[in-house]
């Protein structure tokens, strides 16, 4: 999104259109009550949040991680273990999970930052696998591949609810939070540094940007939110196992939504999730039984087409229309400028 000025007033369409959109999302449960649709919406927000979090390091900084499920899984496992074994509320677990994911991310990413492009990606895959294998191995703590069951005791303190509406709002708020943070980063100095190091790392270093430091910040923020999303997953599904939360398919999923939606933009991952999540749920429920695998093949074809024809993602296609729409909407500032 283009912003002519840094400060946006509430009446500028750049701000009120997204706000209206989010407000609309807040109102949906008043109309749609069926838990099945609500569940799909929850998944959309959930993946949008994760993909946006991935986008901070993968999109803004251009450091493609295909091991992000590690941070997601660490969040999920931390809070679940704290809750199941020590009775600590998942709210605290959420913070612990997010912070631990952040620390692990910092610890493993920092040395890897000297690797460029595909080599960084390879190292993230390897780290993702190591984390998964270790979690499976240390059975005494994690229960290993058996998986961890979170006993259902509804209550706000336990972050567990009988209905889906509270989960809906939790996921929605999480998504908005990540989007807002992404937006803040993208218009901040840090965002500028990240973009410049993505385009030309040597160049960025030459003009005095501490590229490692900013990459580190980016990966930490990214991992923190991935960890929190992991906690949400554990409390929502109530059963986690290494094969599902640490799977490389999960890692690919985060990146995929971002890249199809539009990598390196704030809206891209959200658009990606709003399109791909219902698409995959729909394809699975219609094709699943009779044509197994076909929906993922369609996914793959889409990915290739997007990469070849629209390397900036679907969001580019919406961008002009969106900006044209913004132009037509009442805008306080433009009037000022004109007068």
């Amino acid at each position: 999104m283009k912003t002519e000025t840094n400060k946006e007033t509430l009446i500028s369409p750049q701000l009120y259109v997204p706000v209206l959109f989010f407000v609309l999302l807040f109102l949906i449960p008043l109309v749609i009550k069926n838990p099945f649709y609500i569940h799909n919406m929850i998944l959309i927000f959930f993946y949008a949040a994760l993909s946006s979090a991935w986008n901070i390091i993968g999109g803004f900084a251009g450091q493609i991680s295909l091991g992000h499920a590690a941070f997601f899984g660490i969040g999920a496992y931390t809070s679940a273990i704290l809750y199941v074994d020590f009775g600590i509320s998942p709210w605290i677990g959420m913070l612990a999970g997010g912070v631990l994911a952040m620390l692990v991310a910092a610890g493993i990413s920092y040395p890897c930052f000297k690797l460029r492009g595909p080599f960084f990606t390879l190292s993230t895959i390897a780290f993702g696998e190591v984390v998964r294998l270790l979690v499976s191995y240390f059975r005494d703590i994690t229960r290993g591949a058996v998986g961890l069951l979170v006993p259902f005791k509804p209550g706000i303190g336990n972050l567990m609810f009988r209905g889906k509406i509270p989960y809906y709002y939790f996921a929605l708020i999480l998504m908005i939070l990540v989007v807002v943070v992404s937006k803040k980063i993208s218009v901040s100095r840090m965002g500028f540094y990240l973009t410049s190091l993505r385009e030309d790392e040597e160049g960025a270093q030459a003009i005095g940007i501490n590229t490692s430091l900013y990459k580190l910040w980016a990966v930490m923020i990214s991992a923190f939110f991935a960890g929190i999303a992991g906690v949400f997953y554990a409390q929502y599904i109530l059963f986690i196992e290494p094969e599902s939360v640490f799977s490389s398919a999960m890692s690919t999923q985060f990146a995929l939504m971002s890249i199809i939606g539009g990598m390196g933009t704030v809206a891209g991952p959200v658009v990606g999730s709003f399109i791909l999540t219902p698409l995959s749920e729909f394809l699975r429920s219609t094709l699943g039984g009779s044509f197994q695998g076909l929906h993922f093949a369609i996914y793959g074809v889409l990915l290739i087409i997007v990469v070849i024809l629209m390397p900036q993602g679907i969001v580019v296609w919406f961008k002009d229309k969106y900006e044209a729409l913004l132009e037509r909407l009442p805008n306080e500032k433009r009037r000022e400028v004109k007068s």
Binding site: Y37, N40, I275, L279, E281, L283, G288, L309
Partner: peptide
Amino acid sequence: ILVYLVVFALISTFAVGCSSGGGGG
């Protein structure tokens, strides 16, 4: 044209996915 096709396909599946998701089985 291809780009338009892809986008159209995506939007229509989104719409269908929202309205009938999961009904198929």
